[in-house]
Amino acid sequence: MFDRRGLQLIRLHNIRKSYLVGAVSVEAVRNVSLTVQMGEIFGIIGHSGAGKSTLLRCVNLLEKPTSGSVTVGDVELTGLSERQLQRQRRRIGMIFQHFNLLSMATVRDNIAFPLTLAKLSKAEVNKRVDELLKLVQLEQHADKYPAQLSGGQKQRVGIARALANNPDVLLCDEATSALDPQTTNSILALLLDINAKLGITILLITHEMNVIRAICDRVAVIDQGEIVEMGDVLQVFLKPEHPVTRDFVDQVADSGANGQLLRERKGRLLRMTYIGDLTYEPILYNAVKPTSVQFAILQGTVSRMKQTPYGQLIVELIGGDEEIERVIAELRKEGLEVEAV
């Protein structure tokens, strides 16, 4: 139905969700609006209890928003009857932190389940299940039961099941939070692959910044039920504005220097940001070479965000004011972002 990237696939408009706990109303999600583009991987990050799961579950209406509207593709889900909603949900796959597989069914039957619900013929079901087993590399385990699988394998079954009906969207509720780091990476790689090869849009929630950094294009930060920051991952990562965002960015920064240490330095402190191929060039050295300015690197990260390399250094420059200005001008000319700390 949709074949162009850049279209708005998911639109959440003024979503609110409150729960009545005893006589008190708890606002789990407050007035959230956001749009997910066709083909992107969109991440929502927040601390435990921030309202991530509630918000994600509003997208397929497992949770009915107290107010606001949810549109997926060109269908407003919030206006549908139960029957219509059940049909639309087949276009929205979902995977879970604890996998939620049928414990009494084999891997094959678990993957076949959504196809059975969609009333496909036995032959069609078998053919599709074989394709999916191959996609998630579980051909060897087709006849095992979930209890006989590792966490990573269980999540692969979850992914295959979620993709069975060729959905437009995949919702991921902390899909890697129950997995060890290595398995997490393999599941994240699979999600990237699915996004790139099948063009499936992914909306994920997590409390781990490395998940966002590894696979997301855009990110929203949620705190106490509200979106406090939203944008391209690179931009949010390098220039976090909200304190909660800074916390998350610090999760993955190599924190060689703390505030105290930086304040004690005598020279001029600069934060330099490289993006793309610049990351691997000897720009700093080239800039100071013609001058008598010396430098010390106090803190630094060189890494990769999805496919983009980036680096961020906090550097102390020692020397005359005029020469330091010349160095800064040179760095900027080369395309670095430089700002005083």
Partner: peptide, 22 residues
């Protein structure tokens, strides 16, 4: 497990489907 029932709902299962298959 509640989660399994929810997973079925997310796949578009009807209540009768949930009784029968889950």
């Amino acid at each position: 497990d509640r989660g399994v029932i929810e997973a079925a709902q997310a796949m578009g299962a009807t209540k009768w489907d949930i009784v029968r298959y889950v």
